[in-house]
């Protein structure tokens, strides 16, 4: 059972208006049957500090990543996680988080790998909810476990691996990291821990569009018109393009993946979650340095 669509006018201009809800809408609908609110943050303790009443916490490090392999959890673990959070296969899931929903978008992308159909973001995320002084609690609501079906993870449509990127040359790539990371002046974003990339720079031919350009100062997504100017205008994307976005570990590019797929309606967008921590350490892959994209090498298939 799906919750109703938020009729907010701003959303109607997006390709998939059903993928966003406003804070007003959530305040009204958060206790609807069949709707589960999920908080997903960069800071692992923020949920404990205070969260939207009735919401559950999903942490990308500790819940969504496999503890041994450098990969996401498999279907059985995802089903167990969903059950433990009271989420059914037909639940409407609304995810919100800190940092302009950057980690919330990442969680949404992982839900999509498992084909969870109705998963939405709270426009403006935690920041906007707090700024509007809406209700928060430190109480954790009891969860009734569900019988979530074990569904295989389907990576191919929205996830790119290193070899997919090598075969993709000649098609658009979007690098969503900071300017310094793109040029190769640094290998990690400003003010973030060094994550050990041996080389700096970007994947040749990638356009630089730092992810945060898609976010307004109140953490909401920019309007359709503004986003079109950035991605179709500045970055030169065109309808029908096959696009791969990447960043450092795939989190910021999930935000861009969401924008391109659900707000602008590109049908073939993949997130390369190996991103720079893999590419910058890989042997014999091409790298461009400086502020220019550089030319695309011949695709390797």
């Amino acid at each position: 059972m799906s919750a109703p669509i938020d009729p907010t006018e701003k959303f109607a201009a997006y390709a998939h208006p059903s993928k966003l809800v406003s804070t007003e809408w959530l305040a009204e609908h958060r206790t609807d049957a069949g709707l589960v609110v999920v908080e997903s943050d960069e800071d692992v303790l923020l949920y404990e500090v205070g969260h939207i009443p009735g919401s559950v916490k999903i942490d990308w490090h500790t819940d969504l990543n496999d503890k041994v392999n450098r990969d996401y959890i498999e279907g059985a673990a995802f089903a167990a996680l969903m059950s433990s959070k009271g989420i059914s296969r037909d639940s409407t899931v609304v995810i919100y988080g800190d940092k302009s929903n950057w980690w919330a978008a990442y969680a949404l992308w992982v839900f999509t790998l498992f084909g969870h159909d109705d998963v939405r973001l709270l426009d403006g995320g935690r920041t906007k909810w707090l700024a509007e002084e809406r209700e928060l609690t430190t109480d954790v609501s009891p969860v009734t476990p569900t019988d979530y079906p074990e569904t295989p993870r389907n990576d191919a449509p929205i996830r790119a691996f290193k070899n997919d990127v090598l075969a993709h040359f000649g098609n658009p790539l979007i690098d969503v990291r900071s300017d310094e990371e793109y040029s190769g002046a640094r290998t990690t974003m400003p003010a973030y821990p060094e994550e050990g990339a041996l080389r700096g720079g970007h994947i040749p031919s990638a356009a630089s569009v730092p992810w945060a350009r898609a976010a307004a100062t109140d953490s909401t997504f920019k309007t359709r018109t503004e986003l079109d100017e950035i991605y179709r205008g500045d970055a030169g994307l065109a309808d029908g393009d096959d696009v791969i976005a990447y960043c450092r570990i795939g989190e910021r590019s999930s935000h861009t993946w969401f924008v391109l797929t659900h707000l602008l309606g590109f049908d073939n967008v993949r997130n390369y979650d190996g991103s720079w921590t893999e590419w910058g350490n890989a042997v014999a892959v091409p790298i461009a340095v400086g502020t220019e994209p550089g030319t695309a090498p011949a695709p390797r298939r």
Partner: peptide, 11 residues
């Protein structure tokens, strides 16, 4: 390491 993640502990 398990509760917070090794990456965050780097901070």
């Amino acid at each position: 390491s398990e509760a917070v993640s090794p990456l965050r502990l780097r901070g």
